[in-house]
Each structure stands twice: as structure tokens, then as C-alpha cells.
Design a protein around this nucleic acid. Structure first.
Lengths: 232, 232
DNA sequence: TTGTCAACTGTCAGTCACTGACATTAATGT
DNA sequence: ACATTAATGTCAGTGACTGACAGTTGACAA
């Protein structure tokens, strides 16, 4: 009985494992498809289970809550980000490493999740999350748990201990806050492409230092919003 | 039918209003007392309603969700903070204004909420929130809504528009992230006093700029954790 | 004071997320 | 082929929350 399940293991396993993985992914697909179409709270677990032709009870054996299935894919993306962060050269200062890791994670997001759901569905899911209060709450809580992991990685890079030095947690807190802001603005903009969220993310991350430094009245915003950069 | 209710209105009103306010406050007190004692999810709405001697249905006429009653007092504190922020001299740069406003808000917190519940109960509530996943989620969501208001105030101070300039939202995002971090660490520390949370808050806010600036290896942490400043 | 109106409340039935217990089915190793 | 074990289905139950309707009680005018 393991709720956790590294997506790319269980390849050399028996029929039982394959079947499990199939229903697992089918539940995700059905849930996201239904929820993005009719709305999260207008979609019942019974509907999702019925779409995959399993009992409601079985759904709850794969996902402990209704929210869980929505974030199943996010989990993979997060793992990817952490991986990218750990791979960053030690010379980069913390905020820069975070920035580069997250941009890299966006870049090869497609390959990672396409085997489970279409990327377009994942993007729609992201927007649904941002527009559903209950999911926003869950998303924020998950993010704050992720922050703890990130802070530990940053502390490791700098040879510090999160228990005695508050700085890792502080940068990560600032970083995560800005990440969420970017995600939210992207969701509101209605643009559904991976490029646009990448661009929004980059733009806001690069705005952190100037914004924190203060002295706004004597400087101009670090990016001109009227002239958007071309999508890479 | 108004769920919102400025706490200090309804003084010159009739018996009906007074009665309503009494049950409203009684529900808050009962809920917080029960939840902090036996835990949030081991406390049912029926229990709370029964403690105040009203029906479960009546509870839901005062608070739309079980979470709402937990955050009823927080709402007052938040309003207080916004008020303090608006009163900050225009000369202060954004982050400094935020810092000073939040510290002021902590200072006269006692007077504001003592009429509803004992401050000590409010502090215990804060810790309960931080140690209850469902409440952490709700708290984060509420905070993110508050962020939007704060960003507007900051933008107003600087003569900017949040729709065109991302900097207000960025500072606020960083600020809120750090605020939450401070609150969480305070909760884990077990210290239940107002002074200790004030001190933790101040310390972490003052760490933002140095932490963001990077170059950690060439500098020392801006505060020594071994020698705590005396409680004011 | 009394009667009418509107607001507040209680009761009841129902939905939905979620859980424990137990029986059933199906894959696995021998 | 058979015993073992994991996956699933069924069922009953809890707790948060909602709509509908009926009963009560303050407010206010006659």
C-alpha cells in the first residue's frame, strides 16, 4: 500500500502493477478532464470513478482526497524543479539558482508529463486551480511544504543549516511568493501556452531585487510592459 | 443578511442586534476554546452549536464554513494592520512601511481583540492554525487575498497602478512570504507570548534585504541568534 | 396595547467527501 | 492447480454543508 509512486518505476513489473498504474493514470485523466470542463466542485467523485469504471472506494485507495488527484501531475513538475535546482552550479547565488532552475523546469515540462496527460490539459488544470478557492488553498499549502525542501537544498549549497540561519528560508519565501504571483497573473491573462507562463515567471523573478531595493520613484520598472518580448 | 460585520458598530442598536452579536461572539469563543483544546478536526459543529445552545443550522447562518469561525478574529487584526499601513508616512519606502505597520499592529493587538476573546486564546488559536493542515491551507488563501489589498495600498502610496507595474505585488509577495515564515517558526517554538511573535517577526523582516542580496558567503547573518534581544 | 411584518431560529431531509469493516475477485509464486 | 496476498466492490456510517419550510420573536405603526 503506497500512495507515493515514482512515475517512472514499475516498468519491469507484472500485470498487477501495470493494471494499477493504468487505473491510476486513467483516474487522473478523467478527473482533470471532468473538473476543467464542468468545474471542480460541480464534479463529484462518483462521476470520476464511474468514468473510469471503478467504485468510489477504489478512487480513495489511489488518492486520499479529491484535491490529491488534481495535484498529482504538479507533484511530478515539482520533483523536476528540485532536481534542476540540485544540478545548478554551486557558484550561482541562491536567488539566481532558483531562477534558473525554475526556467529550466518549464522548458522540458512537456516531455515529462506528456506520457500521462496532454500538456494542454495540464495548463488548463493550472488555471482551474487558480480560479477555485478550495484548490488555491490546497495549492498554497503544498507550496509551503515544498518551500521547506527548497530551503534545505539552498542551505546545503551554501553550507548552512536552516535551523540556525534564517536566510535560506527567507529567500525561498520571497521566491515562492513571487512564483505564485506570476502563476496567478498568468492564469488571469487567459493565455494558455507554456511559453507565456515561462515569460511571466522570468519577468517577475527578475523584478525581485529592484522591487525589494526600494527607491521606486527614482527608477523605472525593470521591464517595459507595453512592448512584450517575442515568445522564444 | 450580512456575513461581514464591523465589530464595533451595532452599539447603538436594538435588542435584536445585541442578541445577534452575543451569539456571534459566543460561537467564536466556544469554537476556539473547543478547537484549541481537543483539536480542530476532533471538534464538530454540533459540539460548538450545543455549547452555545443553538442549532447547527444557526451556526452556519453566522459562519459560512467551519474554517470561518476560526479566522473571525484574524480578520480584525488584518483590518488593524491595513489601517496602520495606510497611516504610515509617505516618505517611507514600501518595505519599511510594511515592516513598521506590522510591528505597530502587534503592539496594540491586545486592546483590539480583548473585548471578544482573551489574547492568550487568540495566540493559542494562531498556533492551532499553523499545526492543522486544513487551517494552514485556509490561512494561506486568506493571506493571498489580503496581499492583493496590501499591494493596492502600496501602489497608492507610490502613485502606481498594480495593473501596469508589477513591483507593488512583488514586494508584498516577498513580505507576506516572510511574514508567514515568521509565524510558523513562532508557532513551532511553543512560545505563546505576544512579545515573542513580535520579536520573531521583526527579526525576519529585517533579514529580507540582506538575504535577497545574495553574497552570503562573504557576509555574516544580520542577527545573532544565540543572543536574543531583551523583550521590550 | 395590539397586531402586522420582517428577521431570526429550529427541524428535517438531502448531498457529498471520506472511512472502516468485510466479502469477493484476481494476480502471483510454488 | 492451489494457497497466498493484494486489489476491488459493497455497505453502512460520520461530518460538513444546503435548501425548504415552519415556528418565534423583536421592531414598529396604529
Amino acid at each position: 500500500m503506497r500512495a507515493e509512486m515514482t512515475p517512472r518505476e514499475g516498468l519491469r513489473c507484472g500485470l498487477r502493477e501495470r493494471k494499477k498504474r493504468r487505473t491510476h493514470d486513467a483516474l487522473i485523466r478523467a478527473a482533470l478532464e471532468l473538473c476543467t470542463q464542468q468545474g471542480y466542485d460541480r464534479t463529484t467523485i462518483d462521476e470520476i470513478a464511474e468514468a473510469v469504471d471503478v467504485s468510489q472506494r477504489t478512487f480513495f485507495r489511489y488518492f486520499t482526497t479529491k484535491e490529491d488527484v488534481v495535484f498529482a501531475v504538479q507533484e511530478i513538475v515539482e520533483a523536476r524543479f528540485l532536481e534542476a535546482l540540485r544540478a545548478r552550479p554551486a557558484a550561482e547565488p541562491p536567488l539566481e539558482a532558483l531562477r534558473n532552475a525554475v526556467l529550466l523546469a518549464w522548458d522540458d515540462l512537456g516531455q515529462v508529463i506528456e506520457s500521462i496527460i496532454p500538456v494542454e490539459l495540464h495548463m488548463r488544470t493550472y488555471q482551474m486551480i487558480e480560479s477555485t478557492p478550495a484548490l488555491v488553498a490546497a495549492h498554497l499549502r503544498r507550496s509551503s511544504e515544498l518551500e521547506e525542501l527548497i530551503a534545505t537544498v539552498i542551505a546545503g549549497r551554501e553550507g548552512l543549516d536552516v535551523a540556525t540561519d534564517p536566510r535560506p528560508r527567507i529567500v525561498v519565501a520571497a521566491f515562492s511568493g513571487v512564483m505564485r504571483l506570476a502563476g496567478r497573473l498568468w492564469g488571469e491573462a487567459g493565455e494558455c501556452s507554456v511559453e507565456s507562463i515561462r515569460a511571466t515567471t522570468e519577468q517577475h523573478l527578475d523584478g525581485i531585487i529592484p522591487a525589494i531595493a526600494g527607491e521606486w520613484r527614482k527608477t523605472t520598472p525593470q521591464r517595459d510592459h507595453a512592448s512584450k518580448p517575442p515568445h522564444a
